[in-house]
């Protein structure tokens, strides 16, 4: 294969973004890792230096105290487990709603597909924060949904929906639905309808056709969409802060509180490292599926 560009020019094209990301993406994580082994100090910046000087020789000081504290205080384990639960439930609901949506778009007339896809993507272009904010007005006790239900006589006292698990699920499904629909659509659109017709001619019922033909072919789309929802949902901060419970925090909020409220930077760093370890497997899976997708297009 011939490659265009002189060797030095090519090196520059790849080298500039590589250098930028090394300094502003890779190095910061190494610093987080380093500070997670440090101890909190009432100083500026509020952590102990990692190398103590013994007779002029720098000696590394690794403290595991932050990690020990994360294990000993049940608050952290409960926040991690709760985040996993919220992310898993929201991803499942997103899939159950997003799959039929993507299927309907992929099966509609080509002229209509573009419009429908645009309708799914359009909310993504308007402010995420304001779209989450809209749900406060809809879900609160004297909110729009309760007012409509009371007016219709369907309920006699307002439902408590805001600051519950329900409102967090709603917020996450609402915000991340396009991330589920788009990869599923990209997958479903490539299916060959002749397979379904053949199965129908052989007497397979609609549900059997879906289960044995469409579903197995769309596994990669399901995986990509689910990971795109699950991974950011784990660390979600804005949605639980505006819509969520006050008695049970998600891990993103815990990290932010340790940092801003308690000014305990080392502990916040340790929380970040544990979160990253949780996410390594899903992120690697996602990158593999994206690489496969790009290579398939060549």
């Amino acid at each position: 294969m011939r490659r265009f560009g002189s060797p030095s020019g090519r090196r520059l094209v790849a080298g500039i973004p590589l250098a930028w990301l090394a300094v502003l993406f890779l190095v910061p994580f190494l610093i987080v890792l380093k500070i997670s082994f440090s101890e909190m100090r009432l100083a500026v910046p509020p952590y102990a230096p990692l190398f103590a000087s013994h007779h002029g020789v720098p000696v590394p000081e690794l403290h595991l105290s932050n990690y020990a504290f994360l294990v000993s205080d049940p608050l952290y384990a409960s926040a991690f487990l709760y985040s996993l639960k919220v992310a898993a439930v929201s991803t499942a609901v997103c899939l159950l709603l997003g799959y039929p949506m993507a299927y309907a778009i992929a099966r509609s007339r080509p002229s209509r597909r573009t419009v429908l896809l645009m309708l799914v993507m359009l909310p993504f272009w308007t402010s995420f924060l304001l779209r989450v904010y809209a749900w406060i007005g809809l879900l609160q006790n004297d909110g729009i949904i309760n007012n409509v239900l009371l007016y219709l006589g369907l309920i006699h006292r307002p439902l408590v929906m805001l600051q519950t698990d329900f409102s967090v699920y709603i917020g996450i499904v609402y915000s991340y639905l396009p991330f589920m629909v788009l990869p599923l659509y990209a997958n479903l659109e490539k299916h060959d309808p002749a397979l379904l017709e053949a199965a129908a001619d052989l007497g397979a019922r609609p549900f059997a056709r879906f289960l044995r033909i469409t579903l197995p072919q769309s596994v990669h789309g399901i995986a990509a969409g689910s990971l795109l929802v699950f991974i950011p949902a784990i660390g979600e901060y804005v949605i639980p802060s505006l819509l969520g419970r006050t008695d049970q925090l998600m891990i993103g909020r815990v990290l932010s509180d340790e940092f801003f409220e308690n000014r305990d930077w080392p502990l916040a760093s340790a929380v970040a490292i544990v979160m990253l370890l949780l996410l390594v497997v899903p992120i690697t899976l996602l990158q593999r599926s994206e690489r496969r997708e790009l290579e398939a297009r060549r």
């Binding site: 795109l228 950011p232 784990i234 660390g235 992120i283």
Partner: peptide, 11 residues
């Protein structure tokens, strides 16, 4: 896909 709290803290 990186949770924003991690990116923000790291930066």
């Amino acid at each position: 896909v990186m949770p924003e709290v991690i990116t923000g803290l790291a930066l």
